[in-house]
């Protein structure tokens, strides 16, 4: 078993690396479709040609494409992710590390929000199938899946910040405060709207999935057997049905990271949060392509790693999974 598991992990890791190389190649090719000479654009049209030449040399843009391709990847592994054209030639890695705390904070709380609301809602809906509770839960989750999250953010701002005046529409908290001890919890209030905005879509899809899985599991013979044995309904649902229903739901929660990143781009724009998503969309608009490359690869890496972890967790919690 152990040997088998190790093989499986190594194989998955290799696949992940190959996928990441594919991601890098696509991003690299796309960035070279953005001509318009970013160096000239960042230095202004009247810049001295000699200065531009030096600048290009600094960014390594005077090399042939294939050299750049391998240079970038070898530098990337060593933590040198290139320089930003726009942000006063700051190293992209530092730029990302500056922005990361806010996005990570937002994302972490959004996932906590999603799990904390979706699991009770999903269980309640399946437990009381075809009742008003179920109907409401299904309705809420369908709305949550279909609501554009930036619009939800705007509506929340209008209600809670403009009309009621409870919070400021723009959460102004620095990255260090967010991850310090009292700050981690006291920053919740200014960030609440953004967290709900980002978490709603995830909450809705997890609720939907959990409800369906619970209903599916409840139809199985072993659940009937447990009931026949005289176990309390509570124990049947929470101990046996939920554990089996959670297996596919774990995958879905892992996959939420994809939605999380996409949602963060929009949520940060709505709330004016200076996070990674905002950095990314600004870089795309301004064609700051070292930043685009760095962030995209970082996002893809996060997704691939999370998928890998989900696979492993899946293997741990479901003994039926075959290792291939």
């Amino acid at each position: 078993m152990a040997h088998n598991t190790l093989n499986y992990v190594i194989k998955k890791l290799l696949i992940a690396v190959v996928v990441l190389i594919g991601v890098y190649t696509i991003v690299f090719l796309l960035c070279f479709m953005m001509p318009g000479d970013p160096v000239r654009a960042s230095m202004g049209l009247r810049a001295d040609p000699e200065a531009i030449r030096l600048q290009r040399q600094l960014f390594g843009l005077d090399q042939p494409r294939y050299v750049q391709y391998f240079d970038y990847i070898s530098n990337f592994v060593r933590g040198d992710w290139g320089l930003s054209f726009k942000y006063e030639q700051q190293p992209v890695f530092d730029l990302i590390m500056q922005r990361l705390p806010k996005t990570a904070y937002l994302g972490l709380w959004a996932i906590i929000f999603c799990v904390a609301t979706a699991i009770p809602l999903g269980i309640a809906a399946s437990y009381k199938q075809n009742t008003a509770v179920d109907g409401t839960a299904v309705f809420i989750s369908q709305i949550g899946v279909s609501i554009p999250n930036f619009w939800l953010g705007i509506m929340l701002i209008v209600i809670f910040a403009v009309v009621l005046g409870w919070v400021s529409p723009v959460p102004e908290v620095t990255g260090e405060t967010l991850w310090s001890f009292p700050g981690f919890f006291t920053s919740l209030k200014p960030y609440a709207l953004a967290i709900v905005t980002l978490g709603t879509g995830m909450m809705a899809s997890v609720t939907k999935m959990l409800r369906e899985e619970m209903l599916e599991v409840s139809r199985q013979d072993y659940i009937t057997l447990l009931r026949a044995k005289g176990l309390s309904e509570r124990s049947v649902q929470l101990k046996h049905a939920l554990r089996n229903a959670m297996i596919p739901v774990v995958t879905i929660i892992g996959l939420q990271l994809l939605i999380l990143v996409s949602g963060a781009v929009l949520t940060e724009t709505v709330f004016g949060i200076n996070g990674l998503g905002r950095l990314y969309i600004d870089a795309v608009i301004q064609r700051d392509w070292f930043v685009i490359m760095g962030t995209t690869i970082l996002f893809a890496m996060a997704v691939v790693i999370v998928n890998l972890v989900v696979d492993l967790v899946y293997m741990l919690i479901d003994p039926r999974v075959k290792l291939r």
Binding site: L257, L260, V261, S262, L266, A300
Partner: peptide, 11 residues
């Protein structure tokens, strides 16, 4: 699939 959807579309 390794790209978050909106990120891929944006780039």
């Amino acid at each position: 699939m390794a790209f978050p959807f909106l990120v891929l579309v944006l780039v």
